Simulated assay, not measured.
Amino acid sequence: MKPRISMITLGVRDIAAAVRFYRDGLGLPRMESPPDVAFFTLKGTWLGLYQRDALAADAGVSPEGSGFGSLALAHNLGSEAEVDATLREAVKAGAVVTKPPEKTPWGGYSGYFRDPDGHLWEIAHNPLFWVGPED
């Protein structure tokens, strides 16, 4: 039996602009795909469930209306410096920081940005345990 792969799909306004943001701006590896869709390979994924109002507050956005769509994607890195660098790369590529990186109550370090289509991303470092695939 082939392994199952989970996929996160984001709705975007402009495929070409979104590809530039994720491929050129954030450096995600793009797979071969038809012109009306783009796929990028990622190393494993986790699903986190968190209370909506608390997640919106953590991201520094309103839980109502267009301020928060009850979803935040997270990208976990190996150090605080990597968090800072990734947020700088995202801004350079067109993202808007909604919450600058800072020490967290859970012992980590994280910040948030919105991509050009408004998708909310948390960029985090968790020194208490590795969140990612086993190498």
Rank of each mutant, 00 (worst) to 15 (best):
P116E: 08
D36E: 14
G108N: 06
E102N: 09
G132D: 04
A90Q: 01
G44S: 09
Y50K: 05
R4Y: 10
I15W: 05
L55C: 06
E82R: 13
Y109C: 10
K92T: 12
P116Q: 10
V83S: 13
A59H: 09
R23A: 13
E82A: 15
V131F: 08
G67F: 00
A74C: 08
V96Y: 00
S79Q: 06
E134K: 13
S62R: 11
K43E: 14
G25C: 09
A93G: 12
F68D: 00
E134R: 12
K103N: 12
T98A: 12
Y112I: 00
P101R: 05
R23V: 00
G60F: 06
G107N: 05
E122V: 02
E32A: 15
T45C: 12
E122K: 11
Y109K: 03
L10S: 07
S6M: 09
A54E: 15
A18G: 12
M31L: 14
L10Y: 11
A59E: 00
E64S: 10
S66R: 02
A59C: 08
R52P: 03
L77H: 04
L26K: 06
R4F: 09
L10F: 14
D36N: 14
P105T: 02
T41K: 12
V131E: 11
L55A: 13
R114V: 00
G118T: 05
A59T: 06
D53W: 02
M31A: 15
P101H: 10
A54M: 11
T45I: 10
E80D: 13
W130E: 11
S6T: 10
G118H: 03
L10V: 03
T45E: 08
P35F: 08
N126D: 12
H75Y: 07
S33P: 03
I5A: 12
N126C: 06
G111I: 01
W46P: 02
A95V: 01
M31D: 11
V19R: 15
